[in-house]
Design a protein around this nucleic acid. Sequence first.
DNA 1: GATATTGTTGATCAAGCGATCAATAAGATT
DNA 2: AATCTTATTGATCGCTTGATCAACAATATC
Lengths: 207, 207
Amino acid sequence: MSSTRKKAARKSPAERAAEIADAARDLALEQGLSTVTLRAVASRIDVAPALVAHYEPNMDALVASTFATVVAAELDDIRGVLAAETRPTARVAALVDTLLDGTRDDVTLVWVEAWALGRRNETLAVAVRQEMDAWQLVVRGLVEDGVEAGEFAVDDAADVAWQLLGMIDGLNAQALVRWSADRARGSVLHRAVEGMLGLDRYALDTA
Amino acid sequence: MSSTRKKAARKSPAERAAEIADAARDLALEQGLSTVTLRAVASRIDVAPALVAHYEPNMDALVASTFATVVAAELDDIRGVLAAETRPTARVAALVDTLLDGTRDDVTLVWVEAWALGRRNETLAVAVRQEMDAWQLVVRGLVEDGVEAGEFAVDDAADVAWQLLGMIDGLNAQALVRWSADRARGSVLHRAVEGMLGLDRYALDTA
DNA sequence: GATATTGTTGATCAAGCGATCAATAAGATT
DNA sequence: AATCTTATTGATCGCTTGATCAACAATATC
Protein backbone atom coordinates (compact mmCIF):
# COMPACT_ATOMS: atom_id res chain seq x y z
CA MET A 1 0.00 0.00 0.00
CA SER A 2 2.63 2.45 1.06
CA SER A 3 4.53 2.02 -2.17
CA THR A 4 1.72 2.79 -4.59
CA ARG A 5 2.63 5.82 -6.63
CA LYS A 6 0.20 8.03 -8.50
CA LYS A 7 2.20 10.74 -10.13
CA ALA A 8 5.38 12.55 -9.28
CA ALA A 9 5.35 16.26 -8.66
CA ARG A 10 6.84 18.19 -11.50
CA LYS A 11 10.23 19.61 -10.63
CA SER A 12 12.88 21.68 -12.36
CA PRO A 13 15.49 19.70 -14.25
CA ALA A 14 18.24 20.83 -11.88
CA GLU A 15 16.22 19.84 -8.87
CA ARG A 16 15.29 16.44 -10.29
CA ALA A 17 18.81 15.73 -11.43
CA ALA A 18 20.09 16.46 -7.94
CA GLU A 19 17.43 14.22 -6.46
CA ILE A 20 18.48 11.36 -8.71
CA ALA A 21 22.14 11.84 -7.87
CA ASP A 22 21.35 11.87 -4.16
CA ALA A 23 19.27 8.73 -4.39
CA ALA A 24 22.03 6.95 -6.27
CA ARG A 25 24.57 8.03 -3.68
CA ASP A 26 22.44 6.86 -0.76
CA LEU A 27 21.80 3.56 -2.48
CA ALA A 28 25.50 3.03 -3.14
CA LEU A 29 26.39 3.74 0.47
CA GLU A 30 23.66 1.54 1.88
CA GLN A 31 23.83 -1.45 -0.42
CA GLY A 32 26.74 -0.99 -2.78
CA LEU A 33 27.34 0.34 -6.28
CA SER A 34 25.89 -2.75 -7.90
CA THR A 35 22.43 -1.88 -6.60
CA VAL A 36 22.44 1.46 -8.40
CA THR A 37 20.06 0.36 -11.14
CA LEU A 38 17.52 2.23 -13.21
CA ARG A 39 14.64 0.74 -11.28
CA ALA A 40 16.16 0.93 -7.81
CA VAL A 41 17.01 4.60 -8.14
CA ALA A 42 13.60 5.40 -9.61
CA SER A 43 11.67 3.59 -6.93
CA ARG A 44 13.68 5.25 -4.18
CA ILE A 45 12.46 8.68 -5.23
CA ASP A 46 9.07 7.37 -6.28
CA VAL A 47 9.38 8.04 -9.94
CA ALA A 48 9.06 6.07 -13.15
CA PRO A 49 12.21 4.24 -14.28
CA ALA A 50 12.05 6.04 -17.59
CA LEU A 51 12.57 9.35 -15.82
CA VAL A 52 15.93 8.30 -14.48
CA ALA A 53 16.90 7.12 -17.94
CA HIS A 54 15.77 10.48 -19.27
CA TYR A 55 18.13 12.36 -16.99
CA GLU A 56 21.18 10.16 -17.47
CA PRO A 57 22.98 9.29 -20.69
CA ASN A 58 23.18 5.70 -19.49
CA MET A 59 23.50 3.77 -16.27
CA ASP A 60 27.23 3.28 -16.56
CA ALA A 61 27.61 7.04 -16.34
CA LEU A 62 25.35 7.32 -13.30
CA VAL A 63 27.27 4.58 -11.52
CA ALA A 64 30.55 6.29 -12.35
CA SER A 65 29.43 9.71 -11.17
CA THR A 66 27.97 8.20 -8.03
CA PHE A 67 31.29 6.56 -7.26
CA ALA A 68 33.10 9.84 -7.83
CA THR A 69 30.70 11.71 -5.57
CA VAL A 70 31.11 9.28 -2.69
CA VAL A 71 34.87 9.07 -2.90
CA ALA A 72 35.41 12.79 -3.40
CA ALA A 73 33.34 13.49 -0.30
CA GLU A 74 35.50 11.12 1.70
CA LEU A 75 38.64 12.84 0.46
CA ASP A 76 37.24 16.18 1.56
CA ASP A 77 36.66 14.76 5.02
CA ILE A 78 40.26 13.67 5.12
CA ARG A 79 41.50 17.07 4.04
CA GLY A 80 39.73 18.45 7.08
CA VAL A 81 41.32 15.87 9.35
CA LEU A 82 44.78 16.67 8.01
CA ALA A 83 44.26 20.39 8.42
CA ALA A 84 43.65 19.90 12.12
CA GLU A 85 47.24 18.84 12.66
CA THR A 86 50.39 20.77 11.94
CA ARG A 87 53.39 18.45 12.11
CA PRO A 88 53.60 15.91 9.28
CA THR A 89 54.14 12.99 11.63
CA ALA A 90 50.98 13.81 13.52
CA ARG A 91 49.12 14.28 10.25
CA VAL A 92 50.15 10.85 9.03
CA ALA A 93 49.01 9.30 12.28
CA ALA A 94 45.69 11.11 11.99
CA LEU A 95 45.29 9.98 8.37
CA VAL A 96 45.93 6.34 9.13
CA ASP A 97 43.87 6.22 12.29
CA THR A 98 40.92 7.99 10.72
CA LEU A 99 40.80 5.80 7.63
CA LEU A 100 40.99 2.66 9.72
CA ASP A 101 38.58 3.62 12.48
CA GLY A 102 35.95 1.28 11.09
CA THR A 103 33.30 3.91 10.46
CA ARG A 104 33.66 3.90 6.69
CA ASP A 105 32.69 0.42 5.64
CA ASP A 106 30.04 1.89 3.39
CA VAL A 107 32.66 3.77 1.43
CA THR A 108 34.95 0.75 1.38
CA LEU A 109 32.18 -1.28 -0.18
CA VAL A 110 31.89 1.33 -2.90
CA TRP A 111 35.62 1.12 -3.55
CA VAL A 112 35.70 -2.66 -3.74
CA GLU A 113 32.71 -2.84 -6.03
CA ALA A 114 34.19 -0.14 -8.20
CA TRP A 115 37.34 -2.20 -8.68
CA ALA A 116 35.25 -5.16 -9.75
CA LEU A 117 32.65 -3.32 -11.85
CA GLY A 118 35.29 -1.16 -13.46
CA ARG A 119 36.34 -4.12 -15.55
CA ARG A 120 33.06 -4.00 -17.44
CA ASN A 121 32.22 -0.31 -17.13
CA GLU A 122 34.92 1.76 -18.75
CA THR A 123 33.34 5.04 -17.66
CA LEU A 124 33.60 3.85 -14.10
CA ALA A 125 37.16 2.66 -14.63
CA VAL A 126 38.16 6.15 -15.73
CA ALA A 127 36.53 7.65 -12.66
CA VAL A 128 38.30 5.17 -10.41
CA ARG A 129 41.68 6.11 -11.82
CA GLN A 130 40.89 9.80 -11.46
CA GLU A 131 39.89 9.50 -7.83
CA MET A 132 42.86 7.33 -7.04
CA ASP A 133 45.07 10.01 -8.49
CA ALA A 134 43.37 12.67 -6.40
CA TRP A 135 43.92 10.66 -3.25
CA GLN A 136 47.51 9.96 -4.11
CA LEU A 137 48.13 13.64 -4.69
CA VAL A 138 46.99 14.50 -1.20
CA VAL A 139 48.99 11.77 0.50
CA ARG A 140 52.01 12.51 -1.60
CA GLY A 141 51.89 16.16 -0.58
CA LEU A 142 51.79 15.10 3.03
CA VAL A 143 54.81 12.85 2.62
CA GLU A 144 56.74 15.55 0.83
CA ASP A 145 55.95 17.99 3.62
CA GLY A 146 57.39 15.52 6.08
CA VAL A 147 60.55 15.10 4.08
CA GLU A 148 61.05 18.85 3.78
CA ALA A 149 60.42 19.25 7.48
CA GLY A 150 63.14 16.71 8.12
CA GLU A 151 60.73 14.30 9.82
CA PHE A 152 60.57 11.61 7.13
CA ALA A 153 63.37 9.83 5.32
CA VAL A 154 61.99 8.62 2.02
CA ASP A 155 63.40 7.99 -1.44
CA ASP A 156 60.33 8.53 -3.55
CA ALA A 157 57.32 10.28 -2.03
CA ALA A 158 55.06 9.20 -4.88
CA ASP A 159 55.86 5.55 -4.33
CA VAL A 160 55.30 5.85 -0.62
CA ALA A 161 51.95 7.51 -1.18
CA TRP A 162 50.71 4.73 -3.44
CA GLN A 163 51.99 2.15 -1.04
CA LEU A 164 50.30 3.74 1.93
CA LEU A 165 46.97 3.97 0.15
CA GLY A 166 47.18 0.40 -1.05
CA MET A 167 47.82 -0.82 2.46
CA ILE A 168 44.88 1.07 3.87
CA ASP A 169 42.51 -0.06 1.14
CA GLY A 170 43.55 -3.66 1.60
CA LEU A 171 43.01 -3.62 5.32
CA ASN A 172 39.61 -2.03 4.99
CA ALA A 173 38.55 -4.45 2.28
CA GLN A 174 39.60 -7.30 4.51
CA ALA A 175 37.50 -5.96 7.34
CA LEU A 176 34.54 -5.74 5.00
CA VAL A 177 34.41 -9.53 4.87
CA ARG A 178 35.74 -10.34 8.33
CA TRP A 179 33.52 -7.79 10.02
CA SER A 180 34.49 -9.03 13.46
CA ALA A 181 38.07 -8.03 12.80
CA ASP A 182 39.70 -5.15 14.53
CA ARG A 183 41.47 -3.45 11.69
CA ALA A 184 43.63 -1.32 13.93
CA ARG A 185 45.39 -4.57 14.81
CA GLY A 186 47.07 -3.33 17.91
CA SER A 187 49.10 -0.79 16.12
CA VAL A 188 50.99 -3.05 13.82
CA LEU A 189 50.17 -0.68 11.03
CA HIS A 190 51.90 2.12 12.86
CA ARG A 191 55.08 0.07 12.90
CA ALA A 192 54.76 -0.56 9.18
CA VAL A 193 54.25 3.10 8.38
CA GLU A 194 57.14 4.08 10.61
CA GLY A 195 59.31 1.72 8.60
CA MET A 196 58.13 3.23 5.32
CA LEU A 197 58.78 6.79 6.45
CA GLY A 198 62.06 6.14 8.21
CA LEU A 199 60.58 7.16 11.54
CA ASP A 200 61.78 5.89 14.90
CA ARG A 201 59.81 2.98 16.25
CA TYR A 202 56.65 4.07 18.12
CA ALA A 203 57.00 7.59 16.73
CA LEU A 204 53.44 7.42 15.43
CA ASP A 205 51.92 6.25 18.71
CA THR A 206 52.94 9.41 20.50
CA ALA A 207 52.47 11.82 17.63
CA MET B 1 29.52 -22.76 -37.52
CA SER B 2 32.36 -23.90 -35.33
CA SER B 3 30.25 -23.55 -32.22
CA THR B 4 27.32 -25.68 -33.31
CA ARG B 5 26.89 -28.54 -30.91
CA LYS B 6 25.12 -31.78 -31.70
CA LYS B 7 25.31 -33.95 -28.64
CA ALA B 8 27.78 -34.30 -25.84
CA ALA B 9 29.59 -37.56 -25.29
CA ARG B 10 28.29 -39.41 -22.31
CA LYS B 11 30.75 -39.33 -19.42
CA SER B 12 30.90 -40.66 -15.89
CA PRO B 13 29.52 -38.33 -13.22
CA ALA B 14 32.95 -37.90 -11.64
CA GLU B 15 34.51 -37.07 -14.96
CA ARG B 16 31.79 -34.62 -15.92
CA ALA B 17 31.82 -32.97 -12.51
CA ALA B 18 35.56 -32.44 -12.79
CA GLU B 19 35.15 -31.03 -16.26
CA ILE B 20 32.61 -28.53 -15.02
CA ALA B 21 34.81 -27.51 -12.10
CA ASP B 22 37.77 -27.03 -14.42
CA ALA B 23 35.76 -24.94 -16.84
CA ALA B 24 34.51 -22.76 -14.01
CA ARG B 25 38.05 -22.31 -12.72
CA ASP B 26 39.43 -21.36 -16.11
CA LEU B 27 36.58 -18.95 -16.67
CA ALA B 28 37.17 -17.31 -13.29
CA LEU B 29 40.86 -16.88 -13.95
CA GLU B 30 40.38 -15.53 -17.44
CA GLN B 31 37.43 -13.23 -16.96
CA GLY B 32 36.55 -13.12 -13.30
CA LEU B 33 34.17 -14.87 -10.92
CA SER B 34 31.19 -12.89 -12.17
CA THR B 35 31.40 -14.60 -15.54
CA VAL B 36 30.96 -18.02 -13.99
CA THR B 37 27.37 -18.43 -15.11
CA LEU B 38 25.29 -21.44 -15.96
CA ARG B 39 25.44 -20.72 -19.66
CA ALA B 40 29.06 -19.63 -19.83
CA VAL B 41 30.30 -22.75 -18.10
CA ALA B 42 28.07 -24.98 -20.21
CA SER B 43 29.12 -23.43 -23.49
CA ARG B 44 32.80 -23.68 -22.57
CA ILE B 45 32.60 -27.46 -22.36
CA ASP B 46 30.05 -27.64 -25.16
CA VAL B 47 27.18 -28.93 -23.12
CA ALA B 48 23.59 -27.91 -22.45
CA PRO B 49 23.13 -25.37 -19.62
CA ALA B 50 20.79 -27.78 -17.89
CA LEU B 51 23.61 -30.24 -17.45
CA VAL B 52 25.62 -27.82 -15.38
CA ALA B 53 22.56 -27.14 -13.28
CA HIS B 54 22.13 -30.90 -12.91
CA TYR B 55 25.60 -31.31 -11.44
CA GLU B 56 25.53 -28.33 -9.08
CA PRO B 57 23.06 -27.58 -6.29
CA ASN B 58 22.98 -23.98 -7.48
CA MET B 59 25.27 -21.45 -9.07
CA ASP B 60 26.17 -19.76 -5.79
CA ALA B 61 27.77 -23.02 -4.72
CA LEU B 62 29.71 -23.41 -7.95
CA VAL B 63 31.01 -19.88 -7.69
CA ALA B 64 32.04 -20.47 -4.10
CA SER B 65 33.82 -23.75 -4.81
CA THR B 66 35.53 -22.19 -7.82
CA PHE B 67 36.82 -19.39 -5.65
CA ALA B 68 38.10 -21.88 -3.08
CA THR B 69 39.84 -23.93 -5.74
CA VAL B 70 41.67 -20.97 -7.22
CA VAL B 71 42.77 -19.52 -3.92
CA ALA B 72 43.79 -22.83 -2.39
CA ALA B 73 45.98 -23.54 -5.40
CA GLU B 74 47.69 -20.19 -4.96
CA LEU B 75 48.33 -20.94 -1.32
CA ASP B 76 49.92 -24.24 -2.27
CA ASP B 77 52.22 -22.40 -4.62
CA ILE B 78 53.25 -20.15 -1.79
CA ARG B 79 53.91 -23.06 0.52
CA GLY B 80 56.39 -24.26 -2.06
CA VAL B 81 58.06 -20.87 -2.27
CA LEU B 82 58.42 -20.70 1.50
CA ALA B 83 59.84 -24.19 1.68
CA ALA B 84 62.67 -23.15 -0.61
CA GLU B 85 64.07 -20.83 2.03
CA THR B 86 65.26 -21.65 5.50
CA ARG B 87 65.68 -18.46 7.50
CA PRO B 88 62.43 -16.68 8.40
CA THR B 89 63.67 -13.33 7.17
CA ALA B 90 64.46 -14.76 3.76
CA ARG B 91 61.12 -16.53 3.70
CA VAL B 92 59.24 -13.31 4.40
CA ALA B 93 61.13 -11.58 1.62
CA ALA B 94 60.29 -14.44 -0.73
CA LEU B 95 56.62 -14.33 0.29
CA VAL B 96 56.26 -10.63 -0.31
CA ASP B 97 58.23 -10.54 -3.54
CA THR B 98 56.41 -13.52 -4.98
CA LEU B 99 52.95 -12.22 -4.21
CA LEU B 100 53.77 -8.84 -5.67
CA ASP B 101 55.62 -9.95 -8.76
CA GLY B 102 52.69 -9.03 -10.95
CA THR B 103 52.09 -12.48 -12.39
CA ARG B 104 48.93 -13.16 -10.41
CA ASP B 105 46.48 -10.54 -11.55
CA ASP B 106 44.07 -13.28 -12.51
CA VAL B 107 43.94 -14.51 -8.93
CA THR B 108 43.70 -10.98 -7.61
CA LEU B 109 40.66 -10.41 -9.78
CA VAL B 110 39.06 -13.48 -8.24
CA TRP B 111 39.77 -12.13 -4.76
CA VAL B 112 38.36 -8.69 -5.47
CA GLU B 113 35.22 -10.05 -7.08
CA ALA B 114 34.79 -12.48 -4.21
CA TRP B 115 34.80 -9.61 -1.73
CA ALA B 116 32.11 -7.85 -3.73
CA LEU B 117 29.98 -10.87 -4.63
CA GLY B 118 30.27 -12.28 -1.13
CA ARG B 119 27.82 -9.67 0.05
CA ARG B 120 25.05 -11.30 -1.95
CA ASN B 121 26.25 -14.90 -2.00
CA GLU B 122 26.51 -16.20 1.54
CA THR B 123 28.00 -19.51 0.41
CA LEU B 124 30.79 -17.57 -1.21
CA ALA B 125 31.21 -15.38 1.85
CA VAL B 126 31.78 -18.46 3.98
CA ALA B 127 34.38 -19.75 1.53
CA VAL B 128 36.14 -16.39 1.52
CA ARG B 129 36.44 -16.40 5.30
CA GLN B 130 37.74 -19.96 5.27
CA GLU B 131 40.42 -19.25 2.71
CA MET B 132 41.45 -16.08 4.46
CA ASP B 133 41.89 -18.08 7.62
CA ALA B 134 44.00 -20.65 5.80
CA TRP B 135 46.24 -17.93 4.44
CA GLN B 136 46.56 -16.25 7.77
CA LEU B 137 47.54 -19.53 9.39
CA VAL B 138 50.45 -19.95 7.02
CA VAL B 139 51.72 -16.41 7.40
CA ARG B 140 51.24 -16.49 11.12
CA GLY B 141 53.34 -19.64 11.36
CA LEU B 142 56.07 -17.93 9.43
CA VAL B 143 56.03 -14.92 11.73
CA GLU B 144 56.10 -17.11 14.81
CA ASP B 145 59.07 -19.00 13.42
CA GLY B 146 60.87 -15.73 13.00
CA VAL B 147 60.14 -14.69 16.55
CA GLU B 148 61.34 -18.00 17.96
CA ALA B 149 64.47 -17.78 15.84
CA GLY B 150 65.12 -14.38 17.35
CA GLU B 151 64.90 -12.65 13.98
CA PHE B 152 61.57 -10.82 14.42
CA ALA B 153 60.35 -8.66 17.26
CA VAL B 154 56.55 -8.53 17.25
CA ASP B 155 53.88 -8.37 19.94
CA ASP B 156 51.17 -10.42 18.30
CA ALA B 157 52.01 -12.71 15.41
CA ALA B 158 48.35 -13.15 14.48
CA ASP B 159 47.86 -9.40 14.13
CA VAL B 160 51.00 -9.08 12.07
CA ALA B 161 49.87 -11.87 9.77
CA TRP B 162 46.51 -10.23 9.09
CA GLN B 163 48.17 -6.93 8.54
CA LEU B 164 50.68 -8.31 6.11
CA LEU B 165 48.03 -10.05 4.06
CA GLY B 166 45.84 -6.98 4.00
CA MET B 167 48.70 -4.89 2.72
CA ILE B 168 49.52 -7.33 -0.04
CA ASP B 169 45.91 -7.69 -1.13
CA GLY B 170 45.45 -3.95 -1.23
CA LEU B 171 48.53 -3.36 -3.34
CA ASN B 172 47.56 -6.05 -5.79
CA ALA B 173 43.99 -4.80 -6.03
CA GLN B 174 45.33 -1.34 -6.74
CA ALA B 175 47.51 -2.66 -9.53
CA LEU B 176 44.50 -4.39 -11.03
CA VAL B 177 43.01 -1.01 -11.87
CA ARG B 178 46.19 0.95 -12.45
CA TRP B 179 47.73 -1.73 -14.59
CA SER B 180 50.63 0.49 -15.56
CA ALA B 181 51.69 0.64 -11.94
CA ASP B 182 54.79 -1.05 -10.69
CA ARG B 183 53.58 -2.65 -7.50
CA ALA B 184 57.03 -3.33 -6.19
CA ARG B 185 57.28 0.44 -5.74
CA GLY B 186 61.00 0.56 -5.39
CA SER B 187 61.03 -1.46 -2.28
CA VAL B 188 58.92 0.72 -0.10
CA LEU B 189 57.02 -2.34 0.96
CA HIS B 190 60.19 -3.89 2.26
CA ARG B 191 60.68 -0.92 4.55
CA ALA B 192 57.11 -1.27 5.79
CA VAL B 193 57.49 -4.96 6.51
CA GLU B 194 60.80 -4.37 8.23
CA GLY B 195 59.04 -1.92 10.49
CA MET B 196 56.29 -4.41 11.26
CA LEU B 197 58.70 -7.19 12.10
CA GLY B 198 61.21 -5.10 14.03
CA LEU B 199 63.91 -5.78 11.47
CA ASP B 200 66.80 -3.49 10.72
CA ARG B 201 66.26 -1.22 7.77
CA TYR B 202 67.13 -2.88 4.45
CA ALA B 203 67.29 -6.28 6.15
CA LEU B 204 64.82 -7.64 3.61
CA ASP B 205 66.68 -6.37 0.58
CA THR B 206 69.69 -8.49 1.34
CA ALA B 207 67.87 -11.51 2.75
C1' DG C 1 19.56 -58.86 -28.74
C1' DA C 2 16.25 -57.10 -25.46
C1' DT C 3 16.00 -54.40 -21.34
C1' DA C 4 17.12 -51.26 -17.70
C1' DT C 5 19.77 -47.43 -16.12
C1' DT C 6 20.95 -42.77 -16.24
C1' DG C 7 23.62 -39.04 -18.47
C1' DT C 8 21.90 -35.46 -21.39
C1' DT C 9 18.89 -32.17 -23.58
C1' DG C 10 15.16 -28.78 -25.41
C1' DA C 11 11.70 -26.14 -24.01
C1' DT C 12 10.18 -23.06 -20.96
C1' DC C 13 9.48 -20.16 -16.82
C1' DA C 14 9.96 -16.00 -13.89
C1' DA C 15 12.92 -12.36 -12.66
C1' DG C 16 15.97 -8.69 -13.41
C1' DC C 17 18.50 -5.52 -16.32
C1' DG C 18 19.03 -1.08 -19.75
C1' DA C 19 16.78 1.41 -23.08
C1' DT C 20 13.31 3.74 -26.27
C1' DC C 21 9.14 6.42 -27.56
C1' DA C 22 4.59 8.04 -28.25
C1' DA C 23 1.29 9.90 -25.21
C1' DT C 24 0.00 12.51 -21.18
C1' DA C 25 -0.54 16.33 -18.06
C1' DA C 26 1.45 19.89 -15.06
C1' DG C 27 2.97 24.32 -15.06
C1' DA C 28 4.53 28.66 -17.50
C1' DT C 29 3.38 32.10 -20.86
C1' DT C 30 0.47 34.95 -23.15
C1' DA D 1 -8.87 31.46 -20.11
C1' DA D 2 -6.40 29.60 -23.95
C1' DT D 3 -2.03 28.05 -25.51
C1' DC D 4 2.53 26.43 -25.42
C1' DT D 5 6.38 24.06 -23.32
C1' DT D 6 8.26 20.15 -21.33
C1' DA D 7 8.60 17.10 -17.21
C1' DT D 8 6.78 12.67 -16.65
C1' DT D 9 4.94 8.21 -17.66
C1' DG D 10 3.14 3.46 -19.45
C1' DA D 11 4.06 0.19 -22.49
C1' DT D 12 7.19 -2.44 -24.52
C1' DC D 13 11.44 -4.40 -26.52
C1' DG D 14 15.62 -7.30 -26.25
C1' DC D 15 18.82 -9.31 -23.42
C1' DT D 16 20.76 -12.13 -19.52
C1' DT D 17 20.35 -14.57 -15.50
C1' DG D 18 19.07 -19.19 -12.54
C1' DA D 19 16.14 -22.95 -12.42
C1' DT D 20 12.90 -26.94 -13.48
C1' DC D 21 11.15 -31.12 -15.92
C1' DA D 22 9.48 -34.30 -19.19
C1' DA D 23 11.55 -36.54 -22.94
C1' DC D 24 15.45 -38.55 -25.29
C1' DA D 25 19.38 -41.60 -26.16
C1' DA D 26 23.80 -43.77 -25.06
C1' DT D 27 25.64 -47.27 -22.37
C1' DA D 28 25.70 -51.14 -19.24
C1' DT D 29 23.40 -55.26 -17.84
C1' DC D 30 21.18 -59.36 -18.37
